[in-house]
């Protein structure tokens, strides 16, 4: 009886509670005179299956939110919930099975001495998966790399291929939420499009929830449904991508940001 109740409860939570809830989150670095408030009482919610973008200039605290969420930054205050569970100071293995992250620079996010095979098999064994061999091959095909890349080292891969490996690593634990920290900004334009299409396809296939950080409005517009605009550590406005495209923003900073990224196109017209 209690079992059934439990199942019903989790069903209810997944359908109604958001995948990510951020409530009054503040993050800071250093203390005393050196204290820098990177994020100031941020609030936003992500429904399951949504794709949400955080945009803003560099230094506005977008990436810091992701780092606090994953536990890489420990100096934060407020409430963060993932699938209805409150996050404390420490993250459990269970958390890392639900939430994974893709880093900005694919040249820095892969261990220079570990082959693709080592990276993926270590990830899989950390999450206690069986039949690692088959899973590695499936992961590589999922991200559009053939099995011929399995025993390559990072220095034998291009930037786009490295980012695909990083995405494969993030997908290995079969997470439901993927945090994307400017996943395309270190790549050149044609490769950016490939990675963005890959992310779009993966989201459809695996019902992922995306929380993406970018300073590139075109990238966010391609992948996300809603965006939050950040300035100096504060979220100044949350709006949908349609509104963003039609320049229907209320906050002057957002208008400024949209103008500056679209201004170039306008003058041409």
């Amino acid at each position: 009886m209690s079992e059934i109740n439990h199942v019903r409860n989790t069903d209810a939570t997944t359908s109604s509670t958001p995948a990510i809830e951020i409530d009054n989150l503040s993050v800071w670095f250093g203390h005393g005179h050196d204290r820098v408030d990177a994020v100031k009482s941020a609030n936003f919610n992500l429904p399951t299956g949504a794709s949400f973008g955080l945009v803003g200039e560099s230094g506005s605290g977008k990436s810091t939110i992701l780092r606090a969420l994953t536990g890489l930054v420990k100096t934060w205050q407020g409430t963060m919930r993932v699938n209805g569970h409150d996050l404390g100071k420490k993250r459990s293995k269970d958390f890392y099975k639900q939430v994974q992250m893709v880093f900005q620079d694919p040249y820095a996010s892969l261990h220079p001495r570990h082959s693709v095979d080592q990276v993926l098999s270590e990830t899989l064994s950390l999450h206690k998966f069986k039949n690692i061999n088959d899973r590695i091959e499936k992961l590589l095909t999922d991200v559009g790399l053939g099995p011929q890349f399995r025993f390559r080292y990072p220095h034998q891969l291009s930037g786009g291929q490295r980012q695909r490996v990083a995405i494969a690593r993030a997908l290995a634990p079969e997470p439901s939420i993927l945090l994307l920290d400017e996943p395309t900004s270190a790549l050149d334009v044609s490769v950016q499009a490939e990675i963005l299409n890959l992310l779009t396809d993966l989201r459809e296939e695996q019902n992922l929830t995306y929380l993406m950080v970018s300073h590139n409005l075109a990238v966010v517009g391609h992948l996300c449904e809603n965006i939050a605009v950040m300035q100096n550590g504060e979220i100044v406005e949350i709006l949908s991508v349609e509104d963003m495209r039609e320049l229907k923003s209320t906050h002057p900073y957002t208008q400024n940001l949209l103008q500056s990224s679209l201004g170039f196109v306008r003058e041409e017209c």
Partner: peptide
């Protein structure tokens, strides 16, 4: 402090 160490931390190592 490099990203690949952060990445493996995020796998629960």
């Amino acid at each position: 402090s490099s990203d690949y160490i952060s990445a493996v931390k995020l796998q629960g190592a």
